[in-house]
Nucleic acid binder design. Structure first.
Lengths: 213, 213
DNA sequence: TAGATTGTTAATCGATTAACAATC
DNA sequence: TAGATTGTTAATCGATTAACAATC
C-alpha cells in the first residue's frame, strides 16, 4: 500500500520532468537547482520541490539536484526500469503508426503484436511486428506476456474487446477509441488518448483567442 | 474580451459532455437532469451545473436540460459550428493516420494537405489529400486558408517549422512532437498530444496498482 | 564559515461539493 | 398547486505558492 495517495496532477507532471532532465543530461549538465529548472520549464520552483518530495528527497541543500540521479529516480517512479510488452488491437493507420514509432522502445515499451479483423492484413508485418487475426487473441495472450493493450479500433467494438482482454488478465489499457470504457473489472488501469477531445480543446482556445483581440 | 477566465479544468471536461450528450441524442433522449447525467458520467451533479453555468443557463428548473439544445450550445462553445482547415506537417505514419481519420470531419475539422521532406512522397495522396513537399509550405499558406497545423515530425525539427508557421500567420498548432514548442509569438494557441507522456502515466499507474495488491 | 538551496510547514488560492432559494 | 430541478451562494477540500529553518 502506498503511504498516501499522490494526486494525478502530480503524476501528469512527472513525464515532463523526465523529459527536461533527459535533455539536460544530453547537454552534459551535471546538476540543477529547482530554481533554474523552474525557469526552463515555466513552473514554480516550489512546485518542483513539492512534487519531487512526494517520492523522496532527491536533492541536497546548497547543491540542488544531480541530473543523472534524478533522471533515473523519476524513471523508476514511472516504471521505466522494467520492460512493458504492448499489443495493439486494430491494425489500421493509427495502430500501424504506433507500431512504427521507435521511440517507445527506448522507454521500455515494446510492441509485440498487432491484431485486426481484416483478413487482408493476415500475416502482414509492420517493422517486423506481425499482424494477427483477432480470433487468435486468446491463444496469443496465453502464450505471451502482455502488459498493455492499446485499443485503436472503432468505438463500437471497444467495450467488447476491452472486456475480452480483461478476462485474459490484461492489467492495463491504452485507449484510443473515442469512448469511456465500461469495464467489468475496475482494477484495470486505463489511460485514455481522446484525439477528438484534444482537437475540441484546441478549437475552444482558438475561438477564445479571437475574441480577446 | 471574455467576462472572466474559464479554467482549463472546465474546458477539458466540455468535450466529454459533448460526447455524452451526442450519445443521448442518438439514443433519442430528449431531456436529462444534471443528476441523471452525473450518474452516467461519474461526476457530481454539482460540477455539471457549475461547469455549464460558466457559459450560461442552459437548463430549466423542474425540467432539466434539453439534450439537443445543450449539445448544440456546447458545440458552439467549442467552436464546432465553424469549419477548421488543418494541414499536417510530417506525412509519416502518424500524419497519414490523422489524414485517414474521417471522424474529425464530422466535427468540422478538415485536413486539406500534408507536407513532408521525403521526395518519395511527392504527389502521393492519402484519402484524396495530397502530400506536398515542405518547401511549398509558404506558397500553400498564401493561397489557402489554414486554421490549424498538426505537427507530426521529429522533435528536432519541430521548433523551426512551428515558427515558420507562425510567421505565415498560423493561429493554432496541434503538436504531436515530443517537445514543448518555443514559439516567437506567445499568442499562438498550442495543444500538445504527448503520447510518450501518456504511456508513462499509464506505466506509473501499473506500478502503483501492483503495489496496492 | 558563508552562501546556496533543499525539505517542509504555513498561507493562499482555486476548484469542487454541498446547500438551498428561485422558479419552471 | 406541488414536485422537481436549476442557478447560485456558501462551505469544504485540495493544490499551489510562499516562507523559512535545516543543512550541505
Amino acid at each position: 500500500m502506498q503511504e498516501k495517495e499522490i494526486s494525478q496532477a502530480v503524476i501528469r507532471r512527472m513525464p515532463r520532468y523526465y523529459r527536461y532532465l533527459g535533455e539536460l543530461l544530453e547537454d552534459g549538465v551535471e546538476r540543477i537547482s529547482s530554481n533554474d529548472l523552474s525557469k526552463r520549464m515555466n513552473v514554480t520552483a516550489s512546485q518542483i520541490r513539492q512534487d519531487l518530495n512526494n517520492f523522496g528527497g532527491f536533492g541536497q541543500q546548497g547543491y540542488g539536484y544531480n541530473v543523472k540521479f534524478l533522471y533515473e529516480e523519476i524513471g523508476k517512479i514511472l516504471g521505466l526500469n522494467q520492460k512493458h510488452n504492448i499489443i495493439v488491437i486494430g491494425a489500421g493507420n493509427l495502430g500501424q503508426a504506433l507500431a512504427n514509432y521507435v521511440k517507445f522502445e527506448k522507454l521500455g515499451f515494446v510492441i509485440t503484436a498487432l491484431f485486426d479483423v481484416n483478413p487482408a492484413l493476415e500475416g502482414v508485418t509492420v517493422r517486423g511486428i506481425k499482424i494477427h487475426m483477432l480470433d487468435e487473441l486468446e491463444d496469443y495472450c496465453k502464450d505471451h506476456v502482455v502488459d498493455i493493450a492499446a485499443l485503436t479500433m472503432p468505438k463500437e467494438k471497444a467495450d467488447a474487446i476491452a472486456n475480452r482482454l480483461v478476462n485474459l488478465g490484461i492489467q492495463a489499457i491504452w485507449n484510443f477509441a473515442h469512448v469511456d470504457l465500461d469495464l467489468i473489472d475496475k482494477d484495470v488501469v486505463v489511460e485514455n488518448v481522446h484525439l477528438s477531445d484534444s482537437l475540441m480543446q484546441l478549437s475552444y482556445n482558438i475561438v477564445k483567442n479571437k475574441q480577446n483581440k
